[in-house]
Design a protein around this nucleic acid. Structure first.
Lengths: 211, 211
DNA sequence: TTGTTGTAGTGAAATAAATCACAAAAAATT
DNA sequence: AATTTTTTGTGATTTATTTCACTACAACAA
C-alpha cells in the first residue's frame, strides 16, 4: 500500500480526536466533525479513510468505537510496543517520566547512558550502562528506539541499535542519521521547530509593515 | 513571498549542516554536499536558494560563511529571540534546562506554572506564577511562546498568550489549538511521532512476510 | 587563446497531494 | 410511497512540490 507519511500522521490525529469526542459523548461522527477537530477538509478525511478501506454509513457517519478500533489496528496499537531510550540527559529524562506513552500502549523498557552517575535499577524504568544496550535489545526483542544523545554520538548509537535488531528510530539529535533502507528514522528537532515559528512570525510582521 | 513550510525547515537544516561542515574545515560547499548532508536532491537545494535569491558561483559553489549569514538573516537569527514557556512539567523542565536554544540565539526568559511548589526566582530561568504571564509578555515584548501543559489547559493558555501579544506558539499539547489568523502555531506531538515510527516498522515487517 | 570540465540557475516536466463535485445510498419527512 | 435531506465514497481536477534537463558561465588545462 503506497502511503503518504502525512496521511498516517492524520490517522493518529483522527484517533486522538475520536478519544476526545467519545468522552464528550459522541457515539457517531461525520467526516466534518473530524475534519474540524484536526483542521483539514472533510473530503480529506474521507479520502484518508478510503485509502485504508475504512467505510462509514451514508448519512450515518462513522461509529466512534468501531472507528477507533480500526485506526488502532492500522496504527499497530493492538499490541504493546516496547521501546528503549538512549541518553538520560534532559530530553531522555523527560521522555522517561512522561506519562503520555503508557496510555498509548507504548512501554518504555529501559534508558541507557554512559554516565555511571545516572545508573539506577531501582526505579520504574531502569537507567542502565550503554554497553548493555545490544544485549538488552536482543533479549527483549525490541524494535523501536529513541535517540536522545548529543549529535556527535548519535550515528554511532544508531549503528549499534540497528545491528542489535532495532527497526525504527525516533531521533532527537539535530543531525541527519543514516541507516539501512529497512530502518525507519523519524526526526524531532526542537530548535528547528522554534526557528520555524520565529521565521513565520517575522515574515508576518514584515508583511504587516509593508501593507 | 509565497513559501512552503518544508522549504523553511530545509533552510534550517542547511544552516545546521553548514555549521558542521565549517568545523570540518569547509570554506565552500556545492549543492550536492548540502543535499547529501540533509538527504535531498541537489536540485532541491538550488531551487530553495533561488526562491530566496541566494546565489553562488558557477563552478565555485557557495562560500560557507556567506551562506550561513544569509540563511541566518532569512531565518530571523540576526537578533535574539525572547521566549517564554508555560508548564513546568516534564517537557517544560527539559526545555528549560536544554542548552540547545541559547546557542541558536533563543533566550528563555521565564517559565510559568500554576503549581506554587515549582516557583523559583533564584535560578537562571525563573519559574513564575501563571497569573504573571500576561504582564510579563507585555512588559518584555515577547512574541514567541512554548506551551507544555496538559491538553485540557492548552487552549486557555493560548488565548491568554495571544491577548497579551504572543504571535507564535510551539505547542507540545497533543491537541489542535485555535488561534487568530496572524498567530503561527507549530505542533510537536511526541506520541504521534513514535506512533508513526511504529506504523512504518509494522508495515515493513508485514511487507517482508508477504514477499 | 582555445578547449574542457564542473556547477549554478531555472523553465519545463513529472510526481504527489489536496480539493472538488457529484452519484449513490440511507434516513427522515410528507 | 414518494420526496427531500444528508452524508459517504470516489473519479476528475486542481494545486503544490519535487525532479529533470539543459543553458550559461567560471575555473582550469593544454
Amino acid at each position: 500500500m503506497i502511503t503518504n507519511k502525512n496521511c498516517i500522521i492524520r490517522l493518529s490525529r483522527y484517533k486522538n480526536a475520536l478519544y476526545r469526542l467519545r468522552t464528550l459523548g459522541f457515539i457517531k461522527v461525520f467526516s466534518d466533525n473530524l475534519a474540524d477537530a484536526i483542521g483539514v477538509m472533510p473530503s480529506q478525511v474521507r479520502k484518508d479513510f478510503s485509502i485504508f478501506g475504512i467505510s462509514g454509513n451514508k448519512r450515518g457517519g462513522y461509529q466512534v468505537d468501531e472507528l477507533i478500533e480500526k485506526l488502532n489496528n492500522i496504527l499497530g496499537k493492538n499490541e504493546i510496543q516496547k521501546v528503549v531510550i538512549v541518553g538520560a540527559g534532559n530530553i531522555g529524562t523527560a521522555l522517561m517520566k512522561y506519562k503520555g506513552f503508557e496510555k498509548e500502549g507504548i512501554k518504555l523498557m529501559a534508558v541507557f547512558d554512559i554516565d555511571s552517575l545516572k545508573f539506577n535499577k531501582t526505579v520504574d524504568v531502569p537507567v542502565l550502562p550503554l554497553e548493555q544496550l545490544p544485549d538488552f535489545i536482543k533479549k527483549n526483542k525490541i524494535r523501536i528506539g529513541i535517540i536522545a544523545v548529543p549529535d556527535i554520538a548519535a550515528q554511532q548509537i544508531l549503528d549499534s541499535m540497528v545491528s542489535a535488531g532495532i527497526k525504527g528510530i525516533l531521533n532527537f539529535a539535530p543531525i541527519r542519521l543514516r541507516g539501512p533502507a529497512d530502518c525507519v528514522i523519524n526526526n524531532v528537532n526542537l530548535e528547528l521547530e522554534l526557528e520555524n515559528v520565529i521565521y513565520f512570525v517575522n515574515t508576518q510582521e514584515k508583511a504587516k509593515v509593508e501593507e
